[in-house]
């Protein structure tokens, strides 16, 4: 039986846009689930980092959004979807150090412009669909290394 026919565990989270202190709760929950299921620690860490940076981005740049996580035996698929301002120049946004975050955000420990590039680094597949004034979808797949796919 190929693993793609296995039903994934699907988790949906609302990421509130108005509460910075709660940013990361969804990533933390996903991390807990993967740990309990006994996933490879390296894969768990890559999922955690990528999803956490993405969650933070939704909070600081897009007033929150939705995270949909599908857990398969050989991979984790994450869709982060928001109705924020969209990203004008995705290529630029992917550059290390590029950030439009205001100083208030930097005082909170974010806004170094390292989020998107690090997310991409953690993922095996990474895609951004965005439209100005409509919102942004970030789609990520993290494969469990050594697993058949």
């Amino acid at each position: 039986m190929s693993s793609s026919s296995v039903q994934p565990i699907v988790q949906l989270y609302e990421v509130p846009g108005n509460d910075f202190t709660r940013a990361g709760e969804a990533s933390s929950k996903v991390k807990g689930i993967l740990k309990k299921l006994g996933y490879d620690p390296d894969a768990i860490r890559r999922v955690s980092i990528a999803m956490y940076e993405g969650e933070i981005n939704m909070v600081i740049h897009a007033n929150g959004g939705i995270a949909r996580v599908e857990i398969f035996p050989d991979r984790v698929e994450i869709l982060l979807s928001d109705q924020g301002p969209g990203i004008a120049d995705v290529e630029k946004a992917m550059e290390e150090g590029y950030s439009t975050a205001p100083d208030e955000v930097r005082a909170l420990g974010f806004g170094a412009g390292m989020g998107l590039p690090n997310m991409k680094k953690c993922c095996d597949e990474f895609r951004i669909d965005t439209a100005i004034g409509k919102g942004t979808d970030v789609y990520m797949i993290i494969r469990v290394r050594g697993s058949k796919s």
Partner: peptide
């Protein structure tokens, strides 16, 4: 770190 908000703990958590 000098950052004392909850994100310092979240960050440490994500990194094990």
């Amino acid at each position: 770190t000098g950052l004392i908000n909850p994100q310092s703990v979240r960050t440490a958590e994500m990194l094990d």
